[in-house]
């Protein structure tokens, strides 16, 4: 596995927006499904330490964009990752928190098993080694969820599950963290806490964040960069710029927002 560049001590203390040493580039990315374009001509830069928010209506291609980044679907154009040494590793470490994550209520699987299934060589049915348990505790500690390690995954609340899945996505520390509508099913104060945690973590570990969400009010405060997607990039810029764009205001009926 690739050692994450963002983990090197040289990066700590560098202002997030200025890092400029590692980045992810999408150039002319397009996806067609049965001949019809789903995504067209996407040019996107994700910088480490920066939170890029992607907004758009349902069917705008947000999840497809994430799948391109994760390398899950064939696409035209290029996706490149440059690490701090300006090399192009084929597989950057990508942490991923998927959409609509809820687990089978009765699944006989603990949070520790979830980590073991992701990290361990030994099959989880034969028990979990001490080193994997420690790695899981470390990951959960980052999101303040270490107390949940022996809980069954099916009985976690929405907010608890988000912290567990974020902790998992941060183990090992990724180059890019991708979150697909992570906050559906979490109340307002839970969202604010989650975004604050996310901001703290990306500054601390200096990874790039790509976040897809409908939560415009919170994003306005926490995102560095915002992209309005409707099959192609309609407009992008600071959250303030994008949220004042007439096309965005129209799409999200933002008449009340100043």
């Amino acid at each position: 596995m690739q050692v994450p560049a963002a983990d090197s001590p040289a990066h700590h203390g560098i202002a997030p927006h200025r890092c400029g040493e590692c980045c992810t580039t999408m150039k002319g990315v397009g996806v067609r499904y049965r001949g019809a374009p789903v995504l067209e001509n996407i040019d996107l830069h994700l910088h480490c330490g920066e939170l890029t928010a992607v907004i758009g209506e349902n069917g705008a291609g947000k999840t497809t964009l994430i799948k391109c980044l994760l390398g899950e679907i064939p696409h035209s154009g290029e996706v490149h990752f440059l690490d701090a040494a300006h090399r192009r590793p084929d597989s950057p470490v990508i942490g991923y928190v998927p959409q609509h994550s809820s687990f089978d209520k009765d699944a006989p699987v603990s949070v520790l098993d979830l980590f073991a299934a992701s990290l361990a060589k030994r099959p989880a049915c034969l028990g979990v080694s001490k080193s994997v348990r420690e790695a899981a505790l470390e990951g959960l500690h980052r999101t303040g969820a270490e107390g949940l390690i022996d809980r069954r995954v099916g009985i976690l609340s929405g907010g608890e599950l988000q912290r567990v899945l974020l902790g998992l996505a941060l183990t090992p520390i990724p180059n890019i963290l991708v979150l697909d509508e992570p906050m559906s099913g979490v109340d307002h104060s839970g969202r604010e806490q989650f975004y604050e945690l996310l901001s703290k973590l990306r500054r601390e570990y200096d990874f790039a964040v790509l976040l897809v969400s409908h939560d415009l009010v919170s994003l306005a405060r926490f995102a560095d960069h915002m992209v309005f997607l409707d099959r192609r990039i309609v407009c992008e810029g600071t959250p303030k710029e994008v949220l004042h764009d007439p096309r965005v205001r129209e799409a999200f009926s933002l008449h009340s927002l100043t």
Partner: peptide, 24 residues
């Protein structure tokens, strides 16, 4: 063979999306 696929299948049973993002 359990050493080869048990953990991957376990992760896949919980979340196919996370499983795909972690193993090609």
């Amino acid at each position: 063979s359990f050493f080869f696929f048990f953990n991957r299948l376990l992760l896949g049973s919980l979340s196919p999306a996370i499983a795909r993002s972690r193993a090609k």
